[in-house]
Each structure stands twice: as structure tokens, then as C-alpha cells.
Design a protein around this nucleic acid. Structure first.
Lengths: 253, 253
DNA sequence: TCGATGCGTTGCGAAGGATGCAACAGTCAT
DNA sequence: ATGACTGTTGCATCCTTCGCAACGCATCGA
């Protein structure tokens, strides 16, 4: 809607592919060099773009700062984390927390068996949206038309023989997930990794996030992992209650 | 330099503090609601901003994607990682890799003892720039005026009794670090944590990155940690050589 | 040593786009 | 039902951005 801003923001994904010099940026944008220069300068002032010694531009540090702050301020994450940590304390496996946003699923928290570490390493990468347990949970709750549209647009990479093959199978799986209120990924992404997940719901019953427990099948069999389902669901429900209960009145300032 | 873009980008740090509605954004920017709306729409189209169900805006997922891609494309990181992993294999402690950028020091890689994990959790947060070994290494190599200016601007939080107290002490410490070619942080940030670090240099001899090994003093004493210094330096030098050697000719496309 | 080519940078007039206003629509609370 | 609030739209005005051309500067080759 705003041409100037639109152009400026188009520079970011362009630089995400790698550093580029002024001419390259101008060409890719289809604008004059001087225009590109002014846009880059503005981005630079805000720290979103950095100029390395060879004068080429690349993405800047402020970007990380923003992403960091953003994820820290997600109240679901804040509420969920203690619950995830407690569950992890008991069962010891890796636990993920994920949300859905505009056609993408992204992890916003993770608890590792050894120590609690917030690892955002998978953030931004195309999450295995067609197979991940958390993705199924989140997509299963989308309004019918949006769900159909999204399922049609997706790619269905055959990570393993057990991966979801196509939109039809995926929609069917989502229906199952919606019915039963939990989801699995049994070797659909990596042959040896199994997951079980449960949805976290807001006050209106809509799924606002999803959590899952993952473990390699050399450690626990799929059946053993499934036996943890009640605990996973209890945790998810506890988070749902707390999230629904406490009104989000942030009386700051 | 570009007013429109400047205003639009100013929205991002504002939203980083927490979700805000249209009116709040407009107020903080000092512009009319309709103007703020158009800017937010543009940000939204690029995925940098997300509109939650209560219509308030917050930072969007694309931001994570960009930050992720950006850090993945840092060639220093790519080159260094195998070396860091190898060193970690031998000595088992936590290893950090950091770079300097426009007054900030940020971690771009980390290897944990258990398994290699890229953890960007500290990115964006104010790194303990006045005490961290990697920070000293990076700042010690700055041009004199820039170093002085920066040292003057910094805060010197007394994390522990051993933290760097002020600019004078810091500049002196940096001089020492520059002389000896390595740095330590002995309980300057957290009482029980010690670090030793070494610089990674480009072809022109300038410090382009810094690495460090950290360990709690309940596991290894400061002396024991210091005895690892030769290995750390060898690793850093190996990275320097590889980084300088291979010309960065990315013959893509 | 000198000219040539390529890059980033600056100042300028023109015009295109962004701005703020005012009016509208929807929602919630009273 | 009525009021207040928030988000939204269309529009005329003016500011801001745009592309041009010329410049400074470095690198390269003769």
C-alpha cells in the first residue's frame, strides 16, 4: 500500500540470500541506484542492514534483536514454559511449543532433556508443516475454507515413506486429529523420530498453540511414547486453563 | 533519509515491546491513524507484522525467517563451525563464536558439550560487552578513536566484584588483550563462570570474529581452563587461515 | 604516468505518492 | 437504543520521493 516502504522491505529478503552491492539491489528492485541508496540508508539507520567492509550490504543485528524480543513477549510462551519444563522434568524428552501464523507454523519454545534452553534454531526454516504433530494440531483447527486452501497450496515433500503424500491424505489426517484432539508424527519427518502432541486452546476453544514430545525410537518405542499421551494432554490442558483464565490485562505504565 | 520508510521501521521496535493497537501506534509515531494504518498494512504484507485476533499488531514470523537466514549466511560462521565442533569434541566445554557490529557484540554460534546446537538465545540481548572475553577481543581491535568513543558510551554494570568497573579500566584491559592476543573473563559476568577466548583474523589481520571457551569453576579451575588456551588459539588460527585463504568468490548464478 | 571504466555519492527539478482530514462502518458497553 | 470507541475509506493538497545527470573516487590497463 505504501510504495516506498514496500520497496524498502523488499530489500530484506533479497539480502537474506546473501550480501549484495548497491547496483545489485537497485537492479533487483527495478529502481535507480540513488533510490536504492536512500532506502538502504534508511534501513541502515534502523540497524536492519549492515554494511560490511567491502561496502556490500547484508542484514543487520537489530533484526536478531527484534526477533528475540518478539518471541520473548509472546504471552503463550511465557505461560506455557513452566508447564513444559515441569513435564520435561518428569519424562525427559524434547518438548516443542509452536504457533500458527499466516500459513506458517513456527516453533516458539523448546525444552531439551539436559537443561532448559530456548532454541530458535528451527524458526524461520520451513517447518515440516505437512508431517509435524504440532502443525497438524494447529491446521486442524483452521476454518474449513482456509484449511482447504492451505492444504492445496502446500508441497508434500516425501521426507520418509511415512510422510503425508498429498493434500487429500493431509486433510483426512487433519480431520482425524480434530476428532481425537491429539496428533502424532511417527517417522514422518525423520525415520527414527516419533512425536505426540496436544493442542492448547484459548477461552473461546480455538487452538492458539500446540505442544509435542519427541523422542528417537531407539530410546522409546512408538507405543511407549504414546503411553505418555495422557501426561501431554494434561499439560496442554493446564496451559489452556491458565491462558484462558488470566485476563491479559497488562497494567504496565 | 526516507521519511516514510523511517516511520514504518520505527514501528518495529515499538511493537517489540509488546502488541499495540492502531491508535497507540499512531500516537507513538506522531502521525494520523490512517497513515499508521497504511504503514502497518505494508509491514503486514511483508510478514514483518502480524495481526492477532484482538486486532492488535505484533511482530510477525517473517522476522524470524530473516534473522535465521541472515545468520546462516554468515560465511565466518560456516567456516568456523566445524573447527568449533572439533574443539568441543576434545575439551567438552561450551564454545561461543561472536562478531562485532556497530557498537554491539553478538553471538552467532554456540556449541554445547552434549550436542551441537545453534542457540541464538542471547542474540539481541545486551551481551555483557564490558566483561565477555569475546567482546574484549573484538573491541580491542577497533580503531583507536572508535574504541575510545565506544568505551565512553558504554555502561559498566557491576555484575560481580570482578566486573570491569569503568571506561579507563576497560581501555586498559583492551590494551592488554591487544598485546597478548587472547582474552579472559574470570568471573566478571557470573561469579562461577570463567572464559578464555582468542581472535579470528581476516587476510588483512583485522579481527573479524572471536571465539571463547566457557566453563563453571566447579568443574574446572581457572588455571585448568587457562591451560586450554593453546588449543583455543590453535583453533582460532586455523579458522583464520581458512577464512583468509579461500577467496569468498561465490560463483552462484 | 596517464586515461578509462566502474562504483558510490550528491543536488536538483518534476511529479508522483504519501499525508491528514472528514465521514463512514462496525463493535461494545451503558 | 444510544453513545463512544476503534478501524476503515475516499479525496484534495502538498510534501516527499524519484530518476536524472554530474561528480568524486578507486581500480585497472596501457
Amino acid at each position: 500500500m505504501s510504495q516506498t516502504v514496500d520497496r524498502a522491505l523488499s530489500i530484506l529478503p533479497l539480502l537474506a540470500q546473501g550480501p549484495a552491492d548497491l547496483g545489485q539491489v537497485a537492479d533487483r528492485l527495478g529502481v535507480h541506484k540513488s533510490t536504492a541508496l536512500r532506502l538502504l540508508r534508511t534501513l541502515h539507520e534502523h540497524g536492519l542492514v549492515y554494511r560490511q567492509q567491502d561496502q556490500r550490504y547484508r542484514l543487520g543485528a537489530r533484526l536478531f534483536a527484534l526477533a528475540q524480543e518478539a518471541v520473548e513477549n509472546l504471552d503463550i510462551r511465557e505461560i506455557a514454559h513452566p508447564h513444559l519444563a515441569a513435564l520435561n522434568e518428569r519424562i525427559g524428552h524434547t518438548i516443542h511449543l509452536a504457533v500458527y501464523e499466516e500459513g506458517e507454523v513456527l516453533y516458539i519454545d523448546k525444552v531439551e532433556s539436559r537443561y532448559p534452553v530456548r532454541m530458535y534454531s528451527r524458526i524461520g526454516k520451513p517447518v515440516a508443516i505437512t508431517v509435524a504433530a504440532v502443525a497438524k494440531l494447529l491446521l486442524a483447527d483452521l476454518p474449513e475454507p482456509e484449511r482447504r486452501a492451505l492444504a492445496g497450496k502446500l508441497d508434500y515433500p516425501p521426507y520418509t515413506p511415512r510422510s503425508t503424500p498429498n493434500a487429500t491424505a493431509f486433510l483426512k489426517e487433519l480431520a482425524t486429529v480434530r476428532e481425537q484432539g491429539w496428533a502424532t508424527d511417527l517417522g514422518g519427518h525423520e525415520e527414527s523420530i516419533n512425536c505426540v502432541g496436544a493442542p492448547i486452546r484459548g477461552a473461546d476453544g480455538r487452538v492458539v498453540a500446540a505442544m509435542s514430545v519427541s523422542a528417537p525410537n531407539v530410546v522409546v518405542t512408538a507405543e511407549e511414547l504414546l503411553s505418555l499421551l495422557p501426561q501431554v494432554r494434561r499439560t496442554a490442558d493446564a496451559i489452556s486453563r491458565e491462558y484462558s483464565g488470566t485476563s491479559p490485562s497488562k497494567d504496565s505504565a
